[in-house]
Nucleic acid binder design. Structure first.
Lengths: 226, 226
DNA sequence: TTGTCAATCAAACATTTGTTTCATATACTA
DNA sequence: TAGTATATGAAACAAATGTTTGATTGACAA
């Protein structure tokens, strides 16, 4: 192992460590030890710790949702199908065990404590994914839907997906262990989110026996409660 | 100002600083300067920096969603109304300018990098809010809805709300400045999320011209939208 | 008044940590 | 072979930072 040159080994070691501990708490000593290089190597190859961080960040960018999506969908694919694919791809990206499981955590850290160098990357990282979603939604929503509304529906979808990563550590603490291991796999969650949003968009059955599918009146919920 | 005793001033100063910079990057020197106390005070009153952090965390816990909700709803209040209230309360809690705007950011940091002391608080903090939501959902969903399904619907709601806090810093970068200032106020976002979820639950009109509103046909949402 | 005790203060201390230095080794070239 | 550039190594350096120390103050009680 560690057949790569020192510079590459440093980048490989830095990714997981920055992701787990954050920029500040990650020490160049630990990174160098992990990479099995001399302490001076960070400054030799990158000048300083911050530059190493920036390059680590840049290397972590490329693959995103697109990676898990088909180049183009077959002619005539229903928008609902595309949406399902998108949500599934997003969940795979966020929760899947990929080749570099530290990329997403690193971006999440940037989201919380943006560094000057990170902001541009963040915008690109999320912007690309988001614009794909917006295009799918454009096929579903009426043409006269204002763009802010379309964006907010998009954010509703992203939000549900991202939450399983953001709150991932405490969800197992709040649901039973059995439920968690049985029903919280990425594909199942993607299925659930798709179900919610397709119902919201009117492309699938509502989750509850709705008594008032229209805005006006209708007999309301009755004899229901825990 | 700073009429409180040194110990209290330390806690007041520590909250915002820990919230903004995180445990590691926050220095006792900065905290002491802000609190206008001597450098040795942290160790004098709390023993060490970590204990100060833990006490800050504990102090930041109490108020949550409940704070913005009525004690009990009037008899006969529709579950849909309760859900709207809940979502509105959550958005106020997450985005509103409250008395201690650093509480939520601090909890978000714990969520990402849990400390031993923080995990218990986190569970309480989110657990209390979540159980209220689950009770409301129980009134809406069919009785035979499995509990994991109810939880996931709850997480869909929480996720949408929390996302505006998590991604709050980059959303303005991805939508036009005008759209953001016009349509992304907490109350408007709460309204949007409620609209999405009520539609998903069948308690409101779908967001788009649905072509297949129910699994087995049935007269469904019509000429309704926006 | 005098003694006691908690609080405050400036200074020093010890550790961590990013960075630099300079010597040595290694590989490639003239 | 000799020379040079590149890479690696151990050590030291300097700054930041959590913690400790010992003196001083000030209030209050005997």
């Amino acid at each position: 192992m560690s057949k790569d040159d020192a510079r590459t080994r440093l980048l490989n070691a830095a990714g997981p460590i920055f992701a787990e501990k954050g920029y500040r708490a990650a020490t160049v000593r630990e990174i160098c030890e992990t990479a099995e290089v001399n302490l001076a190597s960070v400054n030799y190859y990158f000048g300083d710790k911050e530059t190493l961080y920036v390059e680590t960040l840049q290397r972590s960018h490329p693959p995103a949702v697109i990676k898990h999506l088909p180049e183009t969908w077959p002619e005539g694919t229903q928008p609902a199908e595309k949406l399902k694919d998108y949500i599934s791809a997003m969940m795979t990206e966020l929760l899947g065990v990929e080749t570099a499981p530290w990329r997403v955590p690193l971006m999440m850290r940037e989201l919380q404590s943006p560094t000057p160098a990170g902001s541009a990357l963040l915008r690109k990282f999320f912007g690309e994914n988001f614009s794909i979603l917006l295009r799918i939604l454009a096929e579903i929503l009426p043409e006269d839907t204002p763009s802010y509304k379309r964006q907010q529906i998009g954010l509703s979808i992203i939000g549900q997906c991202v939450h399983y990563r953001v709150a991932g550590k405490i969800i197992p603490l709040m649901v039973s262990e059995e439920e968690f291991s049985e029903h919280y796999k990425p594909e199942q969650l993607a299925e659930h989110i798709a179900q919610v949003m397709l119902a919201a968009l009117g492309l699938g059955p509502p989750l509850a026996r709705g008594d008032r599918p229209s805005a006006e009146v209708g007999a309301a919920a009755r004899e229901t409660h825990a």
